[in-house]
Design a protein around this nucleic acid. Sequence first.
DNA 1: CAATAAATTGAATGTTTGTTCAAAAAATAA
DNA 2: TTATTTTTTGAACAAACATTCAATTTATTG
Lengths: 190, 190
Amino acid sequence: MAKVQFDRQTVLDKATSLFWRVGYSATSMQALFEVTGLKPGSVYLAFGNKEGLFKESIDFYAQSSITNLKNKFNQKQGVEQTICEILLSFVEESAQAGYCSCFLLKSQLELDEQSDLREYISSYLATIEGIYTEQLSTLYSEDEAKQKAASIMLHIFGLRVYGYHSNSEAQIVNGLRLGLHWLPWSNFDH
Amino acid sequence: MAKVQFDRQTVLDKATSLFWRVGYSATSMQALFEVTGLKPGSVYLAFGNKEGLFKESIDFYAQSSITNLKNKFNQKQGVEQTICEILLSFVEESAQAGYCSCFLLKSQLELDEQSDLREYISSYLATIEGIYTEQLSTLYSEDEAKQKAASIMLHIFGLRVYGYHSNSEAQIVNGLRLGLHWLPWSNFDH
DNA sequence: CAATAAATTGAATGTTTGTTCAAAAAATAA
DNA sequence: TTATTTTTTGAACAAACATTCAATTTATTG
C-alpha cells in the first residue's frame, strides 16, 4: 500500500486556523483547498467530507489545549498560582491582533442544536473543567473544588467573549480579581 | 404613496428568531422568505439585502433587551436584588428547551474581524454594561461600580456559554454565588 | 373615477456551494 | 521489472446561494 503523502498534522493545523477564524458555515471547501494546498479528491479521501475535516480540526485543537493545560499544572508551582497564570495568559491572548476567542467555544455556539458535534465539543469542555476540579480537589473538599471550578469556567468563558470586543485588558483583570478573589492574585502585583 | 403592507415588527421578530437560532451564515434567504412569508422582492425593497435584514434584527433584539433591562431596574427594588433576579432569570432561560444563548453574543463571535457589524454589536454590549455601571454607582464609587459591572458582564457572558452545553442549573448558580459573593443571594434562599 | 405611486410577485440571474469520479501519478510489493 | 495498491489530480456535477427585475397588484392621490 502507498504511503499518505501529505502531512496530516500540517493540514489539520491550517484547516483548524481557518475554521477557528472564520467559523464552520462561512468556511468554504474552496478556501480549505487553497489554505491546505490539497485538491478536492485528497481531502475527501482523507477526511470524508467537510464535517469530517471539521471534527478532526476540533480534535486537533482540543487535544492540544488539554495537553497544554496539563503541562502547566505539572510545572509544580502551586495549583492556584498556576490558575492565575493561565487566566492572565488568556487575557494577554485576547489583547493580541487577530484574536479569535476559543475555537471550542465559538464552534459550540455556532453549531445547530441537533448536531452530534455539539455534544462532542461539550465533552471536551467538560474534560477541561474536570482538570480544574481535579487540581482544586488537592486543596479543597470535592464540593468546594467543583464550585470553584465552575466559577473558573464561567470566568474563562466570560473573558473569551469579553476579550473579543473590549480592548481594556485592565478592566478584565479587575473583573477576574473581584470574581475570583480567593486566588493568590497578590503574587502578580508589582 | 402606497402604505407598507406587511408588518415590519412581525417580520423582524421572525427573522430575528431564525438568525438567532441558526446564525448569520447558515441562515439562507430562502429560509427567511419561508419564515417571514415575504417574497424576495419585498425583502430586498424593504431591507436592501441579507446584511441589512440582519442588522435590523440585531437592532430589534438589542433595543428590546435594553428596554427590558431598564424596566427591571425601574421596578424599584434594590439595585443588587434586581441584579440577582436578572442573573437567575438568565439561568432559568438557559435551562429551557431550544435555548439559543444571547443573539448579540453569538453574532459577535460569528462575525468576521473586518465587519462593521461587529463594532456595531460591541456598542450595544457596552451600552448594557453601562446600565449596570450606572445602577451600581448609586451604591458604590465610580471605580468600584465599573469593576463590579465588569465582573457582572464576565458572569453573564460566562453563563450564556456555560448554560449552552451544561444542564446543571445548580452548578451555574453556585458559580455565580461564589463569583458574585457581594450580591444579596441570601434573599433567594428558601 | 382616473392617474399616479408604491409594494408584491415569482421566475430567472449568474455565482458559489459541497461533492464525485475516471484517469493519471506515485509508491509499495512480488 | 512488473504487478498491485493507494493517492493525487482537476474537470464536472447538481443543488443551493444571494440577488435582480419586469410585470402585476394594491393603495393613495387628485
